[in-house]
Simulated assay, not measured.
Amino acid sequence: MLDAKPQTTSAGCPVHMDQPGEGRLEFAQADHPPVPQAKIGVLIANLGTPDNYDYWSMRRYLNEFLSDKRVVDYPAYLWQPLLQLIILTKRPFTSGANYKSIWNHEKNESPLLTITKDQTAALADQIAKRIDGDIMVDFCMRYGNPSTKSKVDEMVKAGCDRILFFPLYPHYAGATSATACDQFFRALMEQKWQPSARTVAPYFDHPAYIKSLADSVRHAYDAMDEKPEVLVASYHGMPKRYLLEGDPYHCQCQKTTRLLREELGWEEDKVQSTFQSVFGREEWLRPYTVDHVADLARQGVKRLAVIAPAFSADCIETLEEINEEIRESFEDAGGEQFTYIPCLNDDASHIAALTDVIEANLQGWTA
């Protein structure tokens, strides 16, 4: 039996519930459309994923990604001919092969999509336990599916009059956090009745996040008979020019490494920052991970561990690039034991840390 107690819309108008989540305005005319019960939306966002690893799926995905001016800011008249005629002719084959090597064939989806679904379910469970109120938790991707627009549409139709948008990037960068927020705001522009909106700030130095990173390192080391001599914190790279133009990403990454080292209680040379995924001829943030691990091996380091603090979920850059390409670089240079420490993914401590961040950002919207 439905609760007969009047609910309210975001404007404070009384609503009588005809069915779960939907009702009639108390003073509306008979032909007024049903009004959803007001609720809060928490929309987490990650980078994105191709729908499959075949040529055309990869080409669509790469075209959307590499056409983003936040990612590649060269003038379109120079960049687009190169992208469309050369890069998107060849790269879908190599990228598709890389995705195929890590693909979740059982569910026919990328590992990033699988993990993000698991994170969303775990966050929804924790939020329901810790925060009072009707809160809808979902996820979107900046590139590929499910799109940001589609999820904003779903939340608004479900009655979300307030949406907390949470890009799952611990560190701010124009090419990650900013472009995700850009897409969220574009989606809001298409709404007839825009919900109130908040975006979550970077959490690269949040104590619970740092502790989760440190615990993942301790857990990995405890399982090994011979401990690694050096821990490399490998962050996704960006052109050095972006740093000089004011992007704070590099500084935030360095702080995470320092806080991680302090949490572990290790000496400074035992935890080192590097940057991966270099693209094009422009100089990027250094040192480059693929070169640095080889240098360490040539300097006599035989046992090495790599962690990827900038990634909230394992993806092509960690499962293929770090655990295959960067591992190979270390071993070819004489390294003997390479350990990749997985991303925090849906680990309980990670979910608890993310829930802490969400709870703080919902202040004033929840009781």
Rank of each mutant, 00 (worst) to 15 (best):
Y235K: 03
Y235T: 03
Y235E: 02
H236Y: 08
G237L: 02
G237V: 00
M238W: 04
M238Y: 04
P239W: 07
K240M: 13
R241N: 13
L243Y: 14
L244T: 15
L244P: 14
E245A: 13
G246S: 08
D247H: 06
D247V: 06
P248W: 04
P248Q: 06
H250Y: 13
Q252I: 01
C253F: 02
C253Q: 00
Q254F: 10
Q254C: 12
K255H: 15
K255P: 14
K255M: 15
K255S: 15
T256E: 11
T256N: 12
T257P: 02
L259V: 09
L260Y: 03
L260M: 11
R261M: 09
E262T: 12
E263Q: 14
L264D: 11
L264W: 11
L264N: 11
G265E: 12
E268Q: 14
D269K: 12
K270A: 13
K270L: 14
V271T: 06
V271Y: 02
Q272P: 04
S273D: 07
T274R: 01
T274Y: 02
F275E: 01
F275C: 05
S277Y: 02
V278H: 09
F279M: 11
F279Y: 10
G280I: 08
G280C: 09
E283S: 14
W284S: 05
W284R: 05
R286M: 08
P287R: 03
Y288M: 10
T289S: 09
T289I: 05
T289K: 03
V290F: 10
D291R: 08
D291A: 10
H292Y: 15
H292Q: 13
V293F: 00
D295R: 15
D295A: 15
D295I: 15
L296R: 03
A297G: 07
R298C: 11
R298M: 13
Q299P: 04
Q299K: 14
Q299H: 12
Q299Y: 08
Q299R: 14
V301W: 00
R303D: 07
R303G: 06
L304Y: 01
L304N: 01
L304G: 01
A305N: 03
V306N: 01
I307E: 03
I307Q: 04
I307P: 01
A308I: 06
P309G: 00
P309T: 00
P309D: 00
F311H: 02
F311A: 01
F311L: 04
F311T: 00
S312Y: 03
A313S: 12
A313H: 05
A313E: 05
D314N: 10
E317L: 09
L319D: 05
L319N: 07
L319I: 10
E321I: 08
N323L: 08
E325A: 11
I326K: 03
I326Y: 04
R327A: 10
E328H: 11
E328G: 09
E328Y: 10
E331C: 11
D332R: 13
A333Y: 07
A333I: 09
G334T: 06
G334Q: 07
G335K: 01
G335S: 07
E336L: 06
E336M: 08
Q337I: 10
T339M: 14
Y340F: 15
P342M: 05
P342N: 07
L344H: 00
